[in-house]
């Protein structure tokens, strides 16, 4: 039950970040929203494992945290320098 409540809270948080990503006046609001949704994804993958009764996939959540980093870096580099190289 605790996991379900936590999962509901994370889903509401994702919804709020999504609103920020859709409305966000500046690019940085949107980048922050993507990054925050990424971290919420990590948490939610972990929670889903416990909700479904299969917590063996917890390590997958760790790998998500690593992936989340790459896209944010690329976007920030593009915004700052107008190129990737």
């Amino acid at each position: 039950m605790m996991f379900v409540a936590a999962g509901a809270a994370v889903l509401v948080a994702i919804l709020l970040f999504l609103v920020r990503a859709l409305l966000g006046p500046t690019t940085f609001d949107r980048i922050l929203a993507v990054n925050a949704i990424g971290t919420k994804t990590v948490i939610f993958v972990a929670l889903l494992g416990f909700i479904a009764g299969r917590p063996e996939f917890l390590d997958i959540a760790l790998l998500y945290a690593l992936i989340n980093f790459i896209a944010t870096l690329a976007v920030l580099k593009f915004v700052e320098y107008r190129r990737l190289g």
Binding site: A21, T27, R30, V79
Partner: peptide
């Protein structure tokens, strides 16, 4: 750029 971020 916003569309790219939304696709992510």
């Amino acid at each position: 750029l916003a569309a790219t971020l939304l696709l992510a």
